[in-house]
Amino acid sequence: MTSTTDDVSSLSRTAIPQRRVVRERSVRRGRLGVAVALMAVCALGAVALFGYVSRTQPYLAVARDVPVGAQLTAADLVTVHLNPDPGIASVSSNRIQAVVGKYTSVALLPGTLLNAGALVDKPFPGPGDQVVGLSLKAGQMPSTPLRPGATVLLVSTEEATQDKPTAAAPTIRATVVHVIAGARDGTATVSVAVRESDGPVVARLAAQGRLVLTLTAGN
């Protein structure tokens, strides 16, 4: 009897581990902190997105294939919103009335930004015109950038011969159609429109490298 009582007393003195209880108030505070942090992140993201969108500007892009020499219509264009970049030639959408009706000096591809340099006021090649490609080096053309539609003079550097000792070097008026910068600095391939009667002469002189291109006043 005494042994049983001693065992019970011994058990009562043994520490029974208690389960740790997390207070409900602490859990709620933790969840509330996480929610506040998420709201702050979302707010910052919204501000950044709004700032990005507010900086975009409407520009004109090509909606479908437009061949070279075609007259541009409003159906050929679409408005896109982009961040302005001074390094990219682009046309603002508010200038659509100014570009519709002009003619393309190069083929326009869908999805590309419209470049004002690819448009001219008059159709070309016009009736009775021919387009001739000129491979020009530095010294055969001005350092001023050539733009499609610009009026130029093609001056021959052909040397006098016994047959034509006093013949003056021919000067031919032409219109720039397209310009492609060469692999070397100062070189370019320039396509020009000339009268049909001048086409063979220009082609022959160009093949011999005996042409100099000069800009006329107003370009």
Rank of each mutant, 00 (worst) to 15 (best):
T2A: 13
S3K: 10
L11Y: 00
T14R: 00
I16Q: 08
P17C: 00
R19L: 14
V21A: 05
V22P: 04
V22R: 06
E24K: 08
S26A: 13
R28N: 07
R29S: 12
R29C: 11
R29F: 14
G30F: 15
G33C: 06
L38H: 06
M39D: 03
A40N: 03
V41A: 12
L44A: 15
G45I: 14
A48N: 06
L49Q: 13
L49D: 09
F50H: 12
G51L: 14
V53K: 08
T56G: 00
Y59D: 08
L60Q: 00
V62R: 04
V66F: 03
P67T: 11
V68M: 15
G69H: 04
Q71F: 06
A74D: 09
T79K: 04
V80T: 10
V80R: 09
H81W: 14
L82S: 05
L82V: 12
D85H: 05
S93R: 01
R95K: 10
Q97N: 15
V100N: 00
K102G: 08
V106K: 09
L109Q: 13
L113S: 01
V120D: 10
V120G: 12
D121V: 07
G128Y: 08
V131T: 14
V131G: 04
V132N: 00
L134Y: 02
L134T: 05
S135V: 11
K137D: 08
K137V: 04
K137W: 11
G139W: 02
Q140W: 00
L153P: 01
L154H: 02
T157V: 00
A160N: 08
Q162L: 13
Q162E: 12
D163C: 04
K164M: 12
K164I: 09
P170G: 05
V177A: 07
H178E: 13
I180E: 15
T187G: 02
R195L: 12
E196T: 08
E196L: 14
Q208N: 05
V212W: 02
L213N: 03
T214I: 10
L215V: 08
G218I: 11
